[in-house]
Nucleic acid binder design. Structure first.
Lengths: 344, 344
DNA sequence: ACTTGCGCCTAAATCGATTTAGCATTTTCC
DNA sequence: GGAAAATGCTAAATCGATTTAGGCGCAAGT
């Protein structure tokens, strides 16, 4: 990459412009000109130059300088896409924070932040490759492009990947195949004859796996070839649209497995709007990734890993990686649990 | 604060320990020992020391060094509490990102992250005071303690505060009093005789204002003294518990104004569980801060500012502050809008 | 005249990691 | 045997901001 040509405006630039030393500029920027007795006229000239030249402080430099050598500080990141809903991320964050609070000490500080990238463009996240932003990260909601990118490189710090298997990283994910099978089983027992799976167009590895396992399980138990509904996005609105269209052409449909809960929420609306009832006319299963699935009407039956278990594993793994340097990558599978509620 | 005593493990520490130069250590850490022809034995000794001494790279130093002087980079932060739900924050982030994407150029890069603090402990957020983390921030969901802290200091960079008025900062908030009045008016028109307001125990300035304005408006229009339900937290479960208890003792209650939508969701459940109907037996109003209010059953009537408008204003203000240094603080009020849906 | 003190400012070190230029050896090759 | 090449490493500069120790000139005090 070609380096930019214009040099940035630094304290030196300003100092030269005004005809003082960088020390004077720094003093003014920190508002310590009184105690260090700079002449008011000088202060004003410096302030003027700062404004005119559009000075922007370099946070990395400030941080390096301000850094207390006696304090270990660790920067942790939770990386996810803009496109994904944040419920899950917020639970991850809370757990990470709990872990961090427990481990913090006067000489050991952590900072945790959520950074987002556009789906498929993880590689553009600044500082990821140069290892100049984080000491450890949790990566979730990646698309296949992002996965390919991750596979092609090796990040030189602690990384835990959530929801997919990448050979060179530590991963935590739902036991492959399990969720889809359980959903198929529940719908079969509920007597559904024409169940379908509802997925977003953009699949992550986990959602794709759930859908495939579901279809495979149905076929294995002698079910008929079931439809596969594809919603435009992850939102309830797109879920509702997909279900509405399906019901119009397939009135016999009597069961839906939604691979994300927000889609299930949309399905509810379309089903009710079509004059049907959940679960009497149609059973619905979600995966428990919506914070408030229990407050859906009726409460949503789910098959999916306990998210708290998943996050616990992730956090434990992350801290293990950070303390022992160079542990070989681990794979942790969390089996999905069945939460039977009112929708089946 | 006393500085820690132990010096951190740096490349120098390792270099001294192994008996090589820091350059060699750095080379190994970057995995460039092949191209720079370090002896395999040396590489192994360095790796060993890195592991033994528990080296943790200093990200600030790396970033400073890796920094391309031709590229302006701006670090933006969205600061919020752990306790607050993330729906809103994620919308803020999306808007900020859109603004940032539009302004990015080869010589101008932004990074946006969400950083969280414990309610009331904003002051502990690392780098906030030393200005060594962000070039600009959006602060939301602060508690009165945090507000007091913010009032007592002056952050030397671009700051926009959401949802409260602080004299020395730029703020964007709902027009005070408006939301509560509108809610009262809607419930009055719906013929409610015993409306209550449902709030979490921990109030932000905005939620407190809504509740107060609501009670005041009811009293002003000759309504009777109305109850005030206090839920333990923000969750649907705590909302449901509060409403359940209230209905048991006040069977005549026929309207609820919930100052957050998650509480409204809980209210729905308690109402339905008590064998009542929304809106026939009881009207419910929320504030439109839940992403999926339209998919509640029935869809939730809301009075609240268009969140997108709020965020638009915030983002515009933030970028104005960052480009023009030292603009005097602005206050922007966004009037709440009424979204009539099925719950009233 | 000589110190003392004040007002105003600067030089240089520092934070930690990385890279470029280059220095000693040793080996290879004609 | 001597030049050229390869091997294995280091010194020092650099990124940008901040702080400490201290310098220089001038006025006041003795």
């Amino acid at each position: 990459m070609a380096r930019g040509s214009q040099r940035p405006v630094t304290v030196h630039t300003i100092a030269r412009h005004v005809g003082v030393s960088p020390a004077a500029v720094s003093t003014v920027l920190a508002n310590r000109h009184e105690e260090r007795r700079l002449a008011p006229a000088t202060v004003e000239r410096i302030r003027q130059a700062v404004r005119e030249l559009g000075y922007v402080p370099n946070v990395a430099a400030r941080r390096l300088r301000a850094h207390d050598p006696g304090v270990h500080s660790m920067d942790l990141g939770i990386l996810t896409t803009f496109e994904a809903p944040l419920f899950l991320v917020s639970r991850t964050l809370r757990q990470v924070q709990r872990a961090v609070d427990a481990r913090s000490a006067p000489d050991r500080r952590f900072s945790v932040s959520i950074d987002m990238f556009h789906a498929g463009r993880l590689r553009e996240l600044p500082g990821l490759l140069s290892a100049s932003r984080f000491n450890g990260v949790i990566i979730s909601n990646t698309t296949p492009e992002d996965d390919a990118f991750l596979r092609s490189i090796s990040l030189p710090y602690a990384v835990v990947v959530q929801g997919r298997r990448l050979a060179n990283y530590s991963c935590v994910l739902e036991t492959p195949g399990a969720g889809g099978c359980q959903a198929a089983e529940i719908l079969r027992r509920a007597g559904c004859r024409q169940p379908v799976v509802l997925t977003p167009a953009l699949l992550t590895e986990t959602t794709a796996d759930r859908a495939e396992a579901f279809v495979a399980a149905l076929e294995a138990t002698g079910g008929r070839a079931t439809g596969r509904l594809v919603a435009d996005g992850f939102t309830p609105a797109s879920g509702a649209a997909a279900v509405r269209a399906h019901l119009a052409t397939h009135p016999g449909c009597d069961g839906i497995f939604a691979v994300t809960d927000t889609l299930a929420l949309g399905a509810y609306q379309a089903i009710k709007a079509a004059g049907r009832r959940v679960p009497a006319d149609m059973a619905v299963i979600g995966v428990g990734d919506h914070e408030h699935g229990d407050f859906f009407d009726p409460p949503l039956t789910c098959v999916g890993p306990s998210y708290d278990r998943v996050v616990e594993e992730i956090v434990a793994l992350l801290f293990r990686l950070m303390s022992r340097r160079r542990e070989s990558p681990a794979e942790v599978f969390v089996p999905p649990e069945v939460t039977l509620r009112g929708s089946t």
